[in-house]
Computed example of a mutant assay.
Amino acid sequence: MSKTFQVGAGNKVKLYVALLPLGDRTEPEDVSITASSGITSAATSVTVTALDGPIAGGTPLTFDNGTAKLTVYLAKDAKAGATTLTIEPASATLTGSSTAEYVAKLRLLGGTQLNANINAERADVLVFEDPLGFKDGAITSQSWELPWTANLLTTDEAFRRVFYAASQAVSGREVYVWQEDAPPAGFAKGDGLEGACVVMNAQKNLQSVGILTFTTTFQGQGSPKITRYSLT
């Protein structure tokens, strides 16, 4: 079986996701990580050089010492400048110094459908009588959502980010998403939306060994950030 899920020619809409540190809704950035010493089996912390950016708890990180790799999961948020990562107990040993790359913008593969919904709630304000029956009003709140369905491998790291956020929603865990429409002819990137979201109504259905169908809705509050189509 392929270790990655192939994206078909009909999948024109792109969706990327990153876990957010608790209480932080700013756009995440990539972080390079260097562990100065080995990671022992069942270890719950990793000593690293000072991080140049934050990484959210629940994020899987794969350390590579040049001959072997080990994936660990952050047990809590790591702040910029931190020199120790708190992790879930390591499943194996990785000797010597190693490095890991935290890629913030990780694409969700295998998507079969995606649409964007932007909602607004309006309160009527009775200011004057209108002979045609119109009312004045004020927008009191706004929200947006991105429904998403995909068939993908259970090992997909982007999916594991989303599933973690869904399971930890009551603690305030959110994700940051980037959505891109199909680009116009001659352009590399289409219009899109981005922003912080809660993972709502997550449903996982195991179709066969190692492959699942996952359905969820990313729901954001306020106005999403709009991105425009571009050549790059």
Rank of each mutant, 00 (worst) to 15 (best):
N201F: 07
A158P: 07
A138L: 14
T215V: 09
N205W: 04
N201L: 04
V162E: 02
Y102P: 01
P224K: 04
Q142E: 02
T149M: 14
T227Y: 00
D136F: 09
P131H: 10
D124P: 10
G110I: 09
L152R: 05
L114W: 04
V162G: 02
A123C: 03
L146W: 09
V199F: 02
R122V: 14
R122W: 09
I118K: 00
P131G: 07
E121L: 10
T99S: 12
E174V: 01
V177S: 08
R122S: 08
F134W: 13
L212T: 10
A116E: 08
S167N: 15
A196S: 11
G195Q: 04
S167G: 11
D124E: 13
L153Y: 12
F163V: 08
N117T: 10
G190H: 06
N205C: 02
N115Y: 14
G172N: 09
L193R: 10
I226S: 08
T99H: 06
R122E: 14
V103T: 12
T154I: 12
D181C: 06
S171Q: 10
F128M: 05
L132D: 15
G192C: 05
V125G: 02
A150G: 07
G137R: 06
L153H: 12
V103C: 04
F214N: 03
Y176C: 05
E157C: 07
G172H: 06
V199Q: 01
G222K: 13
A123S: 13
K135S: 12
K135F: 10
V199P: 00
L106F: 12
A116N: 05
A165I: 04
G195E: 01
Q179W: 13
D124A: 14
S171C: 05
K204S: 10
L206E: 09
E157A: 11
Q179R: 12
D191G: 04
A120I: 08
Y164E: 02
A116F: 03
Q221Y: 08
L153S: 09
T140K: 08
Q168R: 14
G111F: 00
I118Y: 00
T99D: 08
R107I: 12
W148P: 00
A104V: 02
A165G: 06
R228Y: 14
G220D: 00
L132W: 13
L152F: 06
